[in-house]
């Protein structure tokens, strides 16, 4: 249940060396979009691109392989990808839209398809929604605080940021590695993440993350009928190398464990908002 509905879960990585080189994990997101673009399944995709500031993502519409390559890798900060969901069908003129997002962004997308209050002509144009796993996110100012203050590293010298194995990792251009325990990072998390009840993008067509599979590989959930169809075509086209999920370590149990932890913790926080902050009042609960 905490993992949502899915048709299959597998370990996978891209067969494209160029994509793998700059990707966060198995290059699933970039490879899927690149394949879908080639195959005419999408006209382009909303991704988190680079911006003027290091590791600050900026939503962008990628309509070429080059633009997709530029968006590889995780930026652990808020990229409001949904802010482009209408514009992508307007000035960009896309009829078949791809979009990648955190679980909450995929929730926003599906709500938007069912309740398109301000999203005229958008609901029918979503061709491929890829979700990534997400435990928490950080405001950009928190990233500055963590890397420059706690990590004593200038952000412009950083080559990669990662969260894994209980730590926040900072890798620098000159080969140094700095690690910060997650108990330090927690307080800098985006507050809205603490009411989040989805770890593995339950509402995506296909969702993916690093947890569950070895370095360089990804865990992939194929969820919707549409996702199933696209995944089968991508496999047939040789886009991915796959392994059964029960053949890899640490496997699906770890995903289930982390998902359960996240959801239990946040459910508790939602409960606390009813009683622990207030007298005779409640903080607002968005889930009705």
């Amino acid at each position: 249940m905490v993992l949502g509905n899915y048709k299959q879960v597998i370990a996978a990585r891209s067969t494209d060396a160029e994509i793998l080189r700059g990707s966060q994990d198995g290059g699933i997101v970039t490879q899927l979009f690149a394949y879908a673009l080639d195959a005419g399944i999408i006209d382009g995709a909303i991704v988190a691109g680079p911006s003027d500031e290091p590791f600050k993502p900026e939503p962008m519409v990628a309509t070429t392989r080059e633009e997709l390559l530029a968006s590889r890798g995780t930026r652990y900060s808020i990229s409001p990808n949904m802010s482009l969901i209408k514009e992508v069908t307007r000035s960009y003129g896309l009829d078949k839209v791809g979009v990648v997002g955190t679980p909450c962004q995929i929730q926003a997308l599906r709500k938007g398809q069912l309740y398109p209050v301000g999203l005229r002509d958008v609901p029918d144009k979503i061709a491929l929604a890829i979700g990534i796993f997400c435990m928490e996110n950080f405001p950009y100012q928190s990233i500055i605080q963590l890397v420059e203050d706690h990590g004593a590293t200038a952000l412009e010298n950083v080559s990669k940021l990662d969260i894994g194995k209980g730590k926040f990792w900072i890798y620098t251009e000159r080969g140094a590695t700095v690690q910060i325990p997650l108990k330090v990072t927690h307080k800098y998390e985006q507050p809205g993440c603490h009411v989040c009840l989805d770890y593995v993008s339950n509402l995506a067509d296909i969702s993916t993350g690093s947890v569950g599979t070895p370095d360089g590989w990804s865990t992939v959930f194929v969820r919707s009928a549409n996702g199933d169809d696209i995944w089968a075509k991508a496999i047939a086209a040789g886009a991915f190398e796959t392994k059964p999920i029960d053949s890899v370590k640490p496997g699906i149990e770890l995903v289930t464990k982390l998902a359960t932890e996240k959801i239990t913790k946040n459910q508790q926080y939602i409960e606390d908002r009813k009683t622990k902050f207030t007298v005779g009042k409640e903080l607002r609960n968005p889930y009705i």
């Binding site: 949904m82 985006q190 507050p191 809205g192």
Partner: peptide, 16 residues
């Protein structure tokens, strides 16, 4: 103000 925003940007997209 209620500590619920996660920055998806749907509001910005919806504004006419």
């Amino acid at each position: 103000n209620q500590g619920l925003c996660m920055g998806c940007g749907s509001c910005a997209a919806a504004c006419p």
